[in-house]
């Protein structure tokens, strides 16, 4: 699937400026990339979270496509209702347009509280795309740990304490969990590689049935890095293989980008204040553990994709 960037760049912006995202937020960048790829015939459902809060402060809305926010844990269930209404009204001839359905949720709303509703909607086979914007913690409520927070990261509920240095547990592999639903399309993407991300959105929307994308969303407030660096931090995460770009299409794994030389994870961690406390003699072992986990996961992914 080819993307005509020139043409897409001239399409009207579907997420209006004037929203209230933080300086340096990569979330709204992701939203704009997704909407550029989906086009205007798209209905969006949103879980409670940063992107919901900053785009719809009544009486204003940044959304130029139909949008619904229901609650925190039910973005997928909500879009499943809208999509079912669409099929019902299509059948009755009350609607005749092709409409895309995209549900968004942050990592809190997807990895944690919304996992059940997402799993149910995927299993039921609704024709929709779910996009998780993964900033690896509950950023909207003040940087609390989630199931997506990496081991060792300092958050408000896993602070870098004298006894417990950040989050003790490994993050869960949500993309793999979703792939376990054997839906037609599952992918990981990053906003730094926007062509890859937009291609994946278009592919996901062209497929009949449920699709899922997990998109890394560096957060300057939560990860503690200078505001201009978000997109480069995302690129860097991909270079370390901490966030591989890959897709699972009808069960077939494909890695979309293989770094020529895997960047040491340490170099990526060093750029983020949330990992600062790991760079001490006492905590150094956590960096080694993280590196070992990334290496193991990367090898497993390569095996699944049949890459040497």
């Amino acid at each position: 699937m080819a993307i005509n960037i020139k043409k897409l760049a001239n399409e009207p912006e579907l997420l209006a400026s004037g929203h209230r995202a933080c300086v340096g937020c990569t979330g709204t960048t992701i939203l704009r990339q997704v909407l550029r790829a989906s086009g205007p015939n798209t209905v969006v459902s949103f879980a409670t979270g940063c992107m919901e809060v900053v785009t719809t402060i009544y009486p204003y809305t940044a959304w130029r496509v139909p949008y619904i926010h229901n609650a925190f844990e039910n973005s997928a269930a909500t879009i499943s209702g809208v999509e079912t209404a669409y099929r019902a009204l299509l059948k009755k001839g009350k609607i005749n347009k092709k409409i895309n359905f995209i549900a968004f949720g942050g990592d809190g709303g997807t990895y944690d509280i919304g996992l059940q509703s997402l799993s149910g909607a995927l299993e039921r086979g609704h024709n929709f795309l779910y996009i998780c914007y993964d900033n690896e913690a509950y950023m909207n409520t003040g940087i609390q740990r989630s199931g997506a927070t990496p081991r060792g990261a300092a958050t408000s509920t896993t602070p870098a304490g004298k006894v417990i240095p950040g989050k003790p547990q490994k993050r869960k592999d949500l993309t793999a969990i979703i792939a376990g639903h054997h839906i037609p399309y599952v992918a990981q993407a990053s906003p730094h590689n926007f062509i890859d991300l937009m291609k994946k959105v278009q592919k996901a929307l062209s497929i009949d049935g449920p699709a899922f994308m997990n998109v890394l969303m560096p957060c300057p407030r939560g990860w503690r890095f200078p505001e201009p660096e978000g997109i480069d931090i995302a690129r860097h995460a991909v270079e370390t293989c901490f966030w591989p770009l890959y897709e699972v299409e009808n069960g077939v794994y494909k890695i979309n980008y293989i770094p020529k030389k895997k960047e040491p994870l340490e170099n990526w961690l060093k750029r983020q204040g949330r990992f600062k406390h790991l760079f001490t003699t006492q905590n150094r072992h956590i960096i080694d553990e993280l590196q070992a986990e990334v290496d193991k996961d990367w090898e497993e992914l390569k095996n699944r994709a049949g890459v040497e």
């Binding site: 039910n74 209702g81 809208v82 079912t84 209404a85 669409y86 019902a88 009204l89 059948k91 509703s117």
Partner: peptide
């Protein structure tokens, strides 16, 4: 009848999906 059923995985999703469907004009 030609009603579309959503066989949800919980009552929370039953009401969530119903909200989505009603907001979709059904």
């Amino acid at each position: 009848i030609d009603t579309e059923l959503i066989t949800v995985e919980s009552e929370h999703s039953a009401m969530s999906a119903t909200v989505g469907a009603a907001a979709g004009g059904a």
